[in-house]
């Protein structure tokens, strides 16, 4: 089984995340860039299958700036076998449509049975790249899986939505996206970190993918018109319970017509 896992580098959610209000893009200088937690979980799903099925080959794939190399290195040290980094200055500020088109072009034809992605990235929160990718590749797509069952020739799982859940399945090859319920990611161990250095990591440009900047970036695209910071919230009244805080709170709610 050949599995490709899509990994994305994002600003750390624990840090102060900023948007450049001039360009509307993520200010990458303001907080540490880390592997999106959901990408690590996606990789974990692949690695668990690999643990119990010898001969499984896992490739991690990312499109991102030079620093995204670190995300792939982490993937390799967790246990992936190979990595592909699509890196090109023309991709700065790429939207979801462009990202999906480029990732589709970077997926080695007939070289994978399954593509695993996160359901939604913590910076963009678009949650649409995997579906777009599936359409480019004309593959079935199982999205937002809480659990993934993989067998020869088929992938199935439980897909959760706002309204409940579905049991879904598709023949391979397929694209799936997973939720944070699907797996708790492992930590790289010493051996993993050491061997990662010897694993293949290829950096490819748009030209090497056979895409001219025009082809990859033309067509309908989303444009940011303006961006502004919302004023920060201030703290209000704070009381320490001395036996009647529940009643005081009820009074506050009543005074604000909330009860």
């Amino acid at each position: 089984m050949k599995i490709v896992v899509l990994m994305k580098q994002v600003p750390d959610t624990y840090g102060e995340r900023r948007l450049d209000t001039q360009t509307g893009r993520v200010d990458r200088g303001s907080s540490e860039a880390i592997v999106d937690e959901i990408s690590e979980r996606a990789l974990e799903v692949a690695l668990r299958y690999k643990d119990s099925h010898k001969g499984t080959h896992v490739t991690v794939l990312t499109m991102g700036p030079a620093s995204a190399n670190a995300a792939l290195r982490k993937g390799l040290s967790m246990g992936a076998d190979a990595a592909i980094h699509v890196l090109d200055d023309a991709l700065v500020g790429a939207d979801m449509g462009q990202t999906a088109a480029v990732l589709a072009a970077a997926l080695p034809r007939n070289e994978y049975d399954l593509v695993i992605a996160g359901n939604e990235s913590t910076d963009g929160r678009g949650g649409a790249v995997p579906a777009m990718l599936a359409e480019h590749l004309n593959l079935p797509h199982l999205s937002f899986l809480d659990s993934v069952e993989l067998s020869v020739g088929e992938v199935s799982g439980e897909r959760v939505s706002e309204y409940g859940s579905l049991d879904v399945r598709a023949p391979l090859p397929a694209v799936v996206s997973i939720t944070e319920r699907a797996a708790e990611a492992r930590f790289p161990n010493f051996k993993g970190i050491m061997t990662a250095k010897r694993k293949p990591l290829s950096v490819v440009s748009l030209a090497e993918l056979g895409l001219g900047p025009a082809e990859a970036l033309a067509g309908a695209r989303s444009v940011v018109l303006c961006a502004s910071a919302r004023p920060a919230r201030a703290a209000g009244t704070k009381i320490v319970d001395e036996g009647n805080a529940g009643e005081q709170l009820a009074e506050f709610l009543a005074a604000n017509r909330l009860i």
């Binding site: 949650g127 579906a131 359409e135 480019h136 797509h141 939505s161 706002e162």
Partner: peptide, 19 residues
């Protein structure tokens, strides 16, 4: 929603639309 995003993503690619 979960379904709305799946549909929108696929449709945008099919219609060569922006999303």
């Amino acid at each position: 929603s979960v379904e709305g995003r799946d549909v929108a993503g696929r449709l945008a690619v099919r219609l060569r639309a922006g999303l």
